[in-house]
Design a protein around this nucleic acid. Structure first.
Lengths: 161, 161
DNA sequence: TCGACTCGGTTGCATGAAGCAACTCTTTGA
DNA sequence: TCAAAGAGTTGCTTCATGCAACCGAGTCGA
């Protein structure tokens, strides 16, 4: 993206995209939701260039979507967590996830499912529980292996921090 | 965006973003939903470079998100319409819209509101009607002037074709 | 009939963002 | 003392974007 802003537009979609519309940004947020909190984990799981990852993390922290916390001093090492603002991207991610699944389905079915922590029901396109009907938020959902899962995905990481 | 695909990722969010994650793509889709169907209209309303608009429209047509229809022969002139696949991006756009409004609100309130055609209720972040509670789709909603509207937005364009 | 204008693009060039690889800095482990 | 891990940073190259100019067909006005 050249200029990453859309100066001519005062539309809220454009405003949202100014912040999270850059390549990789939303995938980084998704990764953090799924438990990739450290630089190396993100770099490996996304296959993103390190300098670009560094720049994106910086931007996401500046925009208050991620929060950087040291988990050890000397040498300083950091983890990234979602803020409320970041967690609130969950409905948009869920909608994109469902759209992607509908129109580019994996041959064996989705490898991961997002389910309601409480009752285990699947999360609908609108971010509600298919089983109990509740309107869910990021913290109410977790990821579990789906029918197309190839191997263990590790413990189904909590969707939130 | 350089390479627009994310080869290392077999995640549905990544798949969705391969298709509509390029700069401008989602804004073009939003514009078509709001009634900007012609090249010139889109170019003017978005302030996008013409060559880029041309490339994006081509891609969106190739991906079966938009459909190009001639509205006159000689000289050939075209309009772009959303396909079902394109219309199905509506929940994601609504989610982004709400996120943008929440975190970058316009000073006088939103300039446009998306409302349920049938009952006039506002559309929630989850794409349901705040008033009657129905789960809505692109065709059920329309755009009307909001409190922050500066002037007439033209007739509130139907969200669908 | 000539010129100006509109619409929907395409072409060429300059710029800047993304990718890749190599390097840094600090600490830990052998 | 040497290597490795973690979290970046720096330099260089390549490709996408933005801008402006051009094109081709038709249409309007005089």
């Amino acid at each position: 993206m050249l200029r990453r802003d859309y100066p001519a537009l005062d539309c809220s979609v454009a405003k949202a995209l100014e912040v999270i519309g850059e390549r990789w940004s939303l995938l980084i947020v998704r990764g953090v939701m799924h438990g990739n909190r450290r630089f190396g984990e993100m770099q490996e799981s996304l296959g993103i260039a390190r300098n670009v990852l560094s720049a994106r993390l910086q931007r996401l922290v500046d925009e208050d979507i991620l929060e950087r916390r040291a988990y050890q001093e000397s040498p300083p090492r950091y983890e990234y967590f979602l803020t409320e603002k970041g967690l609130d991207l969950w409905p948009a991610l869920i909608a994109l996830l469902h759209w992607g699944e509908r129109y580019s389905p994996a041959p064996d079915g989705p490898r991961r499912l997002i389910v309601h922590k409480e009752c285990g029901g699947e999360v609908s396109e609108r971010g509600t529980c298919e089983s109990c009907g509740k309107i869910l938020h990021a913290r109410d959902a977790k990821q579990v292996a789906g029918p197309g899962a190839k191997e263990s995905l590790g413990a189904g990481a909590a969707a939130a921090d």
